[in-house]
């Protein structure tokens, strides 16, 4: 019986809020709460999604419950006590304002232990690179929904290479394929938010 795990798995933000507070009251450290309850819940809902038993709305609800709990824990955590799997700078590329999928990827990455810098939509190559440098990022993750904007991902990948920045690139979005990712020299590609976490982990392993 783990009320916080259940609240996040079922996507119930108000319950997650009370459950995380109860865990803190029991004297658990924020990092232990994240590692023992929250990340396993996000892993479990991700597996359900992969199996086709739950759908995007369920992931959105779980991600929101996770964020509600994280927002309580984060101010209590000192930077040196925080363990992350890596830092990801994420955004929807220039000319494209679609962000449901991108935000879901950001939430799943955060929910599974990455530090995520979400740059929003309509993001230029200069902003991606600037943010990657500022936050010492390990990965730049890009999204595009439109066939008219997906080519901009190549501009970002090329700019990253030209800059000599030591960062991996990964891409996603409805029209994006593994073949396209390979053709533009991106390091990673995923078809959905859950898979994106696995791809990011693999890129940094």
């Amino acid at each position: 019986m783990n009320p916080l795990y259940d609240a996040i798995f079922k996507g119930m933000a108000p319950l997650a809020k009370t459950a995380v507070q109860a865990s803190l009251d029991e004297g658990k450290s924020p990092q232990d709460i994240i590692d023992e309850s929250m990340i396993p819940a996000m892993e479990a809902i991700g597996k359900e999604f992969e199996a086709g038993r739950v759908f995007v709305p369920n992931l959105l609800l779980s991600a929101r419950a996770m964020k509600t709990a994280l927002d309580i824990l984060k101010p209590l955590m000192l930077a040196e006590q925080t363990t992350t799997l890596g830092t990801v700078v994420i955004g929807t590329v220039k000319g494209d304002l679609h962000d449901i999928g991108k935000n879901l990827v950001a939430s799943m990455l955060e929910g599974r232990g990455f530090q995520v810098i979400n740059l929003g939509t309509d993001v230029s190559k200069e902003r991606f690179i600037e943010a990657a440098k500022e936050h010492n990022a390990d990965i730049i993750a890009m999204s595009a929904l439109l066939t008219t904007t997906m080519d901009y991902m190549k501009e970002v990948v090329d700019a990253v290479k030209a800059d000599g920045l030591n960062v991996k690139t990964m891409i996603g979005g409805a029209p994006v394929t593994a073949e396209f990712a390979a053709s533009i020299g991106a390091d990673g590609f995923s078809t959905n938010a859950n898979e994106a976490v696995e791809v990011a982990k693999k890129l940094l392993s």
Binding site: K94, G95, T148
Partner: peptide, 11 residues
């Protein structure tokens, strides 16, 4: 609605 630079639609 917003049509950003380099876009061909209003979102």
């Amino acid at each position: 609605c917003h049509m950003p630079e380099r876009c061909y639609f209003f979102d």
